[in-house]
Structures are given as C-alpha cells and as structure tokens.
Amino acid sequence: MTAVPRSSPVFRVYGRSFLVLVLRPEPPVEVWLAELDAQVARSPAFLESKPVVVDLAGVTAEDADLPGLVRGLQGRGMRVIAVEGADPSWAGAAEWGRPIPGGRSTGEVEAPAADAEPAPPPEAAGLVIDEPVRSGQSIIYPKGDVTIIGSVASGAEVFAGGSVHVYGTLRGRVVAGFTGNPRARVFCRRLEAELVAIDGVYRTADDMDAALRGRAVQAWLDGGSIVMTALD
C-alpha cells in the first residue's frame, strides 16, 4: 500500500460585503443624540450590532466633546469600525485610528419608522377584580395572578395560574397555580375559606388551623404540603 500524499492546505481568501451605516453628527450634538435615541427606541434592531462609521465632517472640536461622542455611540451597542473626517489635531483623533479607505456611497439609508415586528406589548401582569366575587361565580385566569378588591363569597371559586390575593374576606374556594405552578401562593385579609388549593394540593376548612380563622393569612406549598401562616 502506498500512502496517499496529503496535499498541503491551500490558502484561500473569501470576500463578503456589508452595508456600513455612516452616522454624521450635526451640531447641536445633544439634539442629534436625542434624535438618534428616539430612532433606536422606535426600531431597536435597525442599529443594533451593525458596523458603523462615524463621519465627523459636520462637527468641529468646538461643537462637542468628540471623544465622548464616539464613546457614547459605542456605548449604545453600535460597532464603530472607523471614525473619519476628523482633524488629526483634535483630542482623541489618535485613538480612533485611521479611516478605512475606499468605500462606495449607497446614498441615504432610510431609517425604519418602527421594527417590522414590534415587540409584543407586555402581557397584563394579572387580573384585578374591583368588586366582590359572589356565590356561584367562578373566576378562571390561567395566565397569572388574580387580585380581588373585595370578598370571595361562600360558594364562589377563583382559579388562577399564579397567586391569588384577596383584599377582603375569603369565604369561598381558591385554587392557585392550577396550571402547574407550585410557587403560587394565596393571600387573604381574612380567612374563612372553604377550600384552599395550590398546584393540586388542597386543604379544606376542616383541616385548617382554627387559630387562623378570621385572620390575615398566606398559604404556600412546602415540600408537597400546604403551609398556612398568619400575616399579622
């Protein structure tokens, strides 16, 4: 068997072109920066991680603290790859390095009014009910916490994916974390509950500590069983 001679690696270079965004600050620089921040807020994806060339042709050292300006742009999550149009006599000019030669202008890039896919609005933190929950009513809210400003009557039910807060007397049944959340809790200003359950573990009125009746109480799950303590 003759060994197949391994061919030596061939040195190859590949090309790739990017659109470099050119930012041209204008005096007054504070206003220009505010405009830039507004644009970033409207469409965070537009400038994020994009290569950026800062063109200082529009400003002079008298207009602004230029090293601070360049650092400020870098601090906004932009990759400043070069600074051009700076006079070598300006402070900070040395650390910016030489501008990248060449480059072909592609004209003005239109900044998007807003991201094509806007960030979804923050999900409501929970359900707030401003009136008493009456006997026979059933509140079911799998998405999160339920807060009730009022009492939960005997014969009423509250089901929450998260915790349940009752700013009144809890006389009915509450089921917290019913979507499978063992960290959910139940809080009430006055405990007269028929049943309290968290993530499938329940306790009926008969099994509750009589000393907690009529008091502000919280209930949570500890090692697979419900723990209830007074809050006051």
Binding site: E131, R134, S135, G136, Q137, A153, S154, G155, A156
Partner: peptide, 16 residues
C-alpha cells in the same frame, strides 16, 4: 341566617 345570605349573594351576582 347563613343559607338565606348565601342565596342572596348568588342573586346579587345574577343581578350584576
């Protein structure tokens, strides 16, 4: 008395 009060509570829920 408790049974009447609970039934009334139920009716209030229906009224609303």
């Amino acid at each position: 008395e408790v049974s009447s009060v609970r039934d009334s509570d139920r009716i209030i829920g229906l009224l609303d």
